[in-house]
Design a protein around this nucleic acid. Sequence first.
RNA 1: GGAACGGUGGCAGAGCGGACGAAUGCAGCCGCCUUGAAAGCGGCCGUGUCUUCGGGCACCGGGGGUUCGAAUCCCCCCCGUUCCGCCA
Length: 431
Amino acid sequence: MIDLRRLRTEPDAVRAALARRGIDLGALDRIVELDRRQRAVATERDEVRNRIKAISADVGRLHKEGRKDEAGALQAESRALGEQEHALDADADALAADLRAELLVVPNLPADDCPDGASEHDNVVVAVHGYDPDAYADHQRVPHWDIGAELGILDLERGAKLSGSMFVLYRGAGAALVRALVQLALDRNADAFEEVRPPTLVSTQTMISTGHLPKFVDEAYHLERDDLWAIPTAEVPLTSLARDEILDATHLPQRFMAHTSCFRREAGSAGRDTRGLLRVHEFDKVEILAYATPEQAAEVHADLLRRAVGVIADLGLAHRILDLCTGDIGNSSARTFDIEVYAPGADRWLEVSSVSWFSDYQARRANIRYRPAGGKGTEVVHTLNGSALAVPRVWAAIVETYRRPDGKVTVPEVLRPYLGGRELLTAGPSR
RNA sequence: GGAACGGUGGCAGAGCGGACGAAUGCAGCCGCCUUGAAAGCGGCCGUGUCUUCGGGCACCGGGGGUUCGAAUCCCCCCCGUUCCGCCA
């Protein structure tokens, strides 16, 4: 949620920032007007309440003194005020609900240094590592879905049989590779992040806090009977960890990581990237997340990015870093860096991590604050997060990059300890 | 799923229709005392919102109701603990 007070006091600045996203600003006018009316009605209601309270105190005193007649007259007056108060209160509530509904779908203000742009084509490539299109041999130009089937480590047909298309079944060394990647990502961040194993089904409020609802309902799996949502990323439960809490500034930044399944309906991308592991409904991911003060945010953001890039680099995958433009960053984000790996078989750049700084946008929705050291009152914290490692696309890039002329796939050095020393990915028993 | 008991400030825990935003204790902050510290003593010590900056209003799990007046009474819901049932 954007800061209503800021919209009130610096409407032009807010407007200018949101305009950089290239969105319609009509909602802002409605919000300003709803806010004005809501406060006017609430003030009026509070004044009536004030009078009721004063009268009640008098009534109590008069009763004690036995002046029943005078008390009775006041009670009648208060009764009438009560009806007024009720009506005003209902109006104020209705206006507040409308205001909130409008406010919840307004995206975050992009950071000042977020590059301007209209779409993904305007994203800025910050760095490219290990990519040379001419360096790949023919044996690496085979897509992972073919390699996976050939080696018996990926069974897309049976995944589809069980759950439908875009659901995946890994087998043998392929399944072990999933586990190895998860373990690697967790181990690499265990120095600074507390591991959490959260629920993957969460309440509506939890989904609203990160900004995944109400705007992106169609993207999420919903269990109607129990009114629970399958998380699209561990960012959702991890952000709500501190919901409605006031953190101590001396404990910031606070960092958490979690390995979970992630569920996405991919409703808007039907027919796109349907092959192999490019886009799937359910996948494993290790997420890293931090709560920070505004002053710490930039450094924490850089650290998250360093960590996410580090795993990819150590896996020996060609990759690049993108600074997403104002037209492409997510709704809740103020600044986002994407990491893409190059998959030589599919001959495509695949997004494997999105490292975002949400400023106070999510924290305001989730009501997460902190007490500044030595200062008075509370401030809204900043939240940041990124994928430490998202399995399917990394799995795909590894299999394509490390394919040998004989068709077998070499296990990257850093993963071998997690695969019992195994050097090749093959079908059959895992060891 | 059934039953019982609970849900009050950072924590513990009173209050069960009238001056209660709420006793008391602990923790925390400031001061006194002290060479320093502890103990002791005195004071401060929730959040949000609006404000004409005087103050107003809201919040005792959530929602509704009764009343001139609700933390306190009534109804519905949610959550927790324990026991029983079922079960990986």
